[in-house]
Computed example of a mutant assay.
Amino acid sequence: MKKISNIKFILIVAILAALILSACQYDLEDAINDNLEQKGDLIVHFIDVGQGDSIFIQLPNGETSLIDGGTRASGENIVKYLKEQNVEKIDYLIATHPHEDHIGGLPKVVKNFEIGKIYMPDATANTNIFQELLKEIKNKDKKVSIAKGGDIILNDSGVKYEILAPNGEKYGETNDYSVVTKLTYKGNSFLFTGDAEKTSENEMMDKGYNLKSDVLKIGHHGGSTSTSNEFLLKVSPKYGVISLGKDNTYGHPHKETIARLNEQNVTVLRTDELGTIVMNSDGKNINVNKEIKGENTESETQNIKKYYIGNINTKVYHSPDCNYLPKEENQIILKSKKEAEDKGFRPHDKCIK
């Protein structure tokens, strides 16, 4: 009987050892796969183009995307900015809709860079700039993919880049043809809405898309006909980025939109106040202006210093490039040293001189 018990004991120990070893091997394989997936960070540049939109995206796999190109006058500046980031190819070019403040700079971009896939809505405009864009696309012997809600641009290595709108065929407002995209990198997500207004927002909600995102590019430069309460509740962003020009003639951002954002405790970042805004995600945390590749121009350096990041727990404020930034959930954006100190924050002794 003792021999049988000993044999049983040895078998149990052997089985447990095998299970432990297989679990360790599984964890090791998972860790290796995670490292293989994460080749780099996701970096999103909300380029300051004045009263317009242009968003440059550096994907973790080394590919790039450009959403819109600002006004015609922005073209050369965007080309310069992209070259400073050592860009040679735009893998995914998206023209959200055919308004000049979104496609104006794209002919120069198409002319100056290698272009991969091009996405546009099924909408046209009887304007010179729209015709110029089509001409440059033709000169590159490229074809346009008509963007529709539900299409997938990329789904690989922890990155999902999907199209959520347009979902209809005919709209009364050109803005509602806007190509809306969502970019998810592991635990972080960004929603880029072009100039989509309430009609398109309602369609996205009706479709049951997962709109939840950490960062929302506020629709139509903060206009009151976009970013409805219902849509904002679905997205539930931490950051709302508004791309617009100083003292613009449209009165953007409208006070109603700002009130809705404030009511839901969204941290508002505006290009008319901060200049170009750069967000860096490692798939878990998002840092604002953590890294700008290439050579910083004088204006970019000034833009980084125009705001500060406070720690709501310690009441200490930091420069955006400080190595001691608080965790994302403890951060608050402060527009100036005066605002920081008026709110009871004291400067961090390592990064604020």
Rank of each mutant, 00 (worst) to 15 (best):
M204A: 05
I153G: 04
G172Y: 03
Y185P: 00
D195R: 06
I152C: 07
Y171D: 00
T181L: 00
A196F: 01
N202H: 14
D195A: 11
S189F: 07
N167K: 14
M204R: 09
T184P: 00
D214I: 00
T184Q: 07
L154S: 13
L191F: 11
V215G: 01
V179E: 10
L154C: 10
Y161E: 05
V180N: 04
N210G: 01
K170Y: 09
G150S: 12
E173Q: 09
N202D: 13
A147Q: 09
F190G: 02
G208A: 07
M204W: 05
L164Y: 08
Y171V: 02
K148N: 12
N167P: 14
K142E: 15
K186W: 06
K170A: 11
Y209E: 09
N167C: 07
D176R: 11
E201N: 06
S200W: 11
D151E: 13
D214G: 03
K170C: 08
T184F: 01
E173A: 12
Y209C: 13
G172P: 06
L183V: 05
D156G: 03
K207Q: 13
L191R: 09
L191C: 15
K142Q: 15
D214E: 11
Y185V: 02
A165S: 08
G158F: 00
S189N: 10
T184Y: 00
E162C: 02
N167A: 05
Y177M: 08
A165W: 08
K170W: 03
K207S: 06
S200F: 10
N155Y: 03
K182R: 04
E162L: 02
S200C: 12
Y209H: 04
L216F: 05
G149Q: 12
Y185D: 01
L211P: 13
L183Q: 03
G208Y: 08
G187M: 07
S157C: 09
K143E: 13
T184L: 00
N155C: 11
F190L: 03
I163G: 04
D206Q: 15
S189M: 09
